[in-house]
Amino acid sequence: MKKFLTAILAAVLCVCGCFGLTACSDTPTVKIGAQTGTTGYMFASYLKGTEAKAYQSPTLAVTDMQNGVIDYVVTDKAVAQNLVDKIEGIKMIDVALTGEEFFGMAVDSTQTELLAQVNAFFVEKAAEINAIQTKYLTGDEANYVAVPKNVEVTGATETLKIATNAEYAPFEFKQGEDFYGIDMEVAKLLAEYLGMNLEIVDMAFSAVVTSVGTDGIDMAIAALTITNDREENINFTDAYYTNSQVIVCLEENEALDDAGVLMDILAVLCANG
């Protein structure tokens, strides 16, 4: 029995030791964090010679970067700007990592009429939508408008039920009981345009897209990036926001300070690849 136990113990120590050596080796690979399921994560996982780490939110990724677990965070430019404003000791490298990306809303595939109405809304209310976006992108906090969970629109009989994940400032976030953010104010504007009441359902990001068409949810508005693969399965509206991916890193990290174009960044990140 003693021999058996010793053997097990030795095996465990050996394996743990080996893991430890590979995981804490002196030439670490560049570790890049991003929110799970985002285009930022996909970008990070395609890079050669780097390790992509998936987080529940960009904020957690930044926390881990400050703890020294990862080196860089990839996220949407507006989100990055918001993080830099809120959290001390980090900076944004203002170089677009991907081509232009577009956010669209996901509409229940059985409601073709709604899709057409939303697209028309984007054209007609372009100026208002633009104003909302500018307000949040410049951090004009005094003019943020709270959007309650249920918005009553005068004369409305039907309700537009939307799904979102309110942990993604400045697109959607919660303060107290009320929702704020570009998507939330646009949703309110949309409800008024359609003459419908608005109901916002907050849920985990992984549930947002699948929830459309179930439980009476008409649309998902959650900073969803339109891609070809996703269009196969999801009924996207036209684009209402143009986005790009950027890198966030610690203030003392100077490796990317001189980067002017994407190639400079790739040269640093993929140095081991």
Binding site: T36, G37, M42, S45, A54, A106, S206, T227, E232, N233
Partner: peptide, 18 residues
């Protein structure tokens, strides 16, 4: 951030929202 079985499938799902 461990890439376990569940996370692997979640990533696959997210790539095409299916």
């Amino acid at each position: 951030t461990v890439l376990d079985l569940y996370r692997a499938f979640e990533q696959i799902g997210y790539a095409s929202y299916s």
